[in-house]
Amino acid sequence: MSEAAVALHFNVDGEDFTSAGQASVQVKKSLRQLGIDSEIIRKVSIAMYEGEINMVIHAGGGEAHVLIYEDRIEIKLDDHGPGIANIEMAMQEGWSTAPDNIRSLGFGAGMGLPNMKRYTDDMKIDSVVGEGTHIVMTVNL
């Protein structure tokens, strides 16, 4: 396994809903500076934003690592939130446990995890109820 050429790390603030998305926007900027193809940038930054929003809505924040290799980009999301009780249900479009105040902001449509899967070539979810969720998404270059 080769070393990542570029590694980015972000703390996602679980308290501040208004700043959610900052990490994704920063990733987009960094990928653009690296000259990555714009469709790849779109996929990575949308998948990352959905993950970031999920961590804010459900987990009180978390950490994101973005690793850029020669042949792929990996996005790792780690939180210590409540975990996902039923991953199969959570992967269905339209299924959400987001509260009403989140829905009124335009989130909670049940599209977060499905979008993350849709925009990446591989996604692995490792979640333990009461402990947290770890997600690794890969976009091939």
């Binding site: 208004t18 900052q22 926007v25 987009k28 335009g106």
Partner: peptide, 14 residues
């Protein structure tokens, strides 16, 4: 929709 998050969505969706 007019809250702050529309800006991030517009940026990311390009």
């Amino acid at each position: 929709m007019s809250n702050i998050n529309i800006v991030a969505v517009a940026t990311l969706a390009d």
